[in-house]
C-alpha cells in the first residue's frame, strides 16, 4: 500500500519538477540526489567507507554546524518578541520566559545551543589538531576555522548584552573597557593618551557609541548579533566547507 502510494507520488509532474530524479533507491538516483541538490551537494556523491568511521571525526564539525542552524532558527523566534530598547528589553525577556507559549523553550534552547556551539568548536578544533588535519595543503582552512572560532565567541559576547540584565551589563562593560586598553587607539592603553586618544574618540567609544554602556551599545550589539556576525559566519562557513572539498579530506585513504 505505502509502496504503491510512493510509486504514484514519484511519478507525478510536481515531484519530478522539484527533484529532477526518482526516489533514491538505486545507485543512479543516489548519485543524483546528492549532486542535484544545492544543500546536499557540499558532499561528494561517494565517500570512502573509512570516512564514515565515527571514531575519527566524532561528527564534531557537523554538530557545530547543526547548532549554528539551531541558533539561527531559535534566534529568529526570539526576535519576534524582542525590542532592543533599554526600557523594554528586560521586560521582553521576562515575557518570553514566563508568558509567551514556548518562549522559555526557545530561550533555553538558544542559550544552551550557544554554550554547545562554543564547546563543539573547541572540540572540533582539538580533533583537527590531534589528527594533524591542518597540515599542508589544508593550512588555510585551519585559519578560516580560527576565524570562525573567534566569530563564535564574539557572537556569544554580543548576545548576552541583549537581555539587559546584570550579567549583560557587566560583561559588556568589562569587555569594552578592555578594548579601551588597546595600545595606541584606546584611552587607557599604552601610548593612547600620548596620541591624544580620549574617552570620546577611542575604540571603546566606537564599540558602544557612547562613554557608558547604554542605548547606543544595546542597538549596536543587537545589529551585530542578529545581522552582521551571522552573515560573516555564514560566508566563512561556506569557504570552510568548500575548502574541505577542494583541499581533500585528511582521513585514512
Amino acid at each position: 500500500m505505502l509502496e504503491k502510494m510512493k510509486e504514484k507520488v514519484v511519478q507525478t509532474q510536481l515531484f519530478k519538477s522539484v527533484f529532477r530524479h526518482g526516489y533514491p533507491d538505486n545507485e543512479l538516483n543516489q548519485a543524483y540526489v546528492v549532486f542535484s541538490n544545492i544543500f546536499l551537494h557540499i558532499h561528494p556523491v561517494k565517500v570512502r567507507r573509512s570516512a564514515l568511521r565515527m571514531r575519527y571525526t566524532f561528527c564534531l564539525g557537523g554538530i557545530t554546524l547543526f547548532l549554528f542552524i539551531m541558533l539561527a532558527v531559535t534566534g529568529i523566534w526570539l526576535m519576534f518578541y524582542y525590542t532592543p530598547y533599554t526600557g523594554l528589553a528586560y521586560k521582553n525577556i521576562k515575557d518570553i520566559q514566563f508568558v509567551i507559549f514556548g518562549g522559555n523553550l526557545m530561550r533555553d534552547l538558544h542559550r544552551f545551543a550557544a554554550h554547545g556551539m562554543v564547546l563543539f568548536v573547541w572540540l572540533h578544533m582539538t580533533r583537527v589538531f590531534l589528527t594533524g588535519a591542518y597540515k599542508a595543503p589544508r593550512e588555510f582552512n585551519w585559519v578560516v576555522g580560527v576565524v570562525l572560532l573567534v566569530n563564535t565567541l564574539i557572537l556569544s559576547w554580543t548576545g548576552y548584552l541583549l537581555p539587559w540584565d546584570q550579567l549583560a551589563y557587566w560583561a559588556v562593560t568589562v569587555g569594552t573597557k578592555m578594548a579601551s586598553y588597546t595600545p595606541f587607539i584606546g584611552q587607557n592603553g599604552p601610548w593612547g593618551a600620548q596620541l591624544g586618544v580620549n574617552p570620546t574618540n577611542d575604540l571603546m567609544f566606537m564599540m558602544i557609541g557612547g562613554t557608558v554602556v547604554g542605548q547606543n551599545a544595546l542597538i549596536r550589539f543587537y545589529v551585530l548579533h542578529c545581522v552582521v556576525l551571522p552573515l560573516v559566519v555564514t560566508v566563512f562557513l561556506a569557504v570552510h566547507f568548500w575548502r574541505i572539498r577542494k583541499d581533500g579530506f585528511s582521513g585514512p585513504l
Partner: peptide, 13 residues
C-alpha cells in the same frame, strides 16, 4: 564609515 560610528550627540545619564 569611521566617522559614522562616532555619534556627535549623546543621551547619557
Amino acid at each position: 564609515a569611521y566617522k559614522y560610528l562616532f555619534p556627535p550627540i549623546l543621551y547619557e545619564p
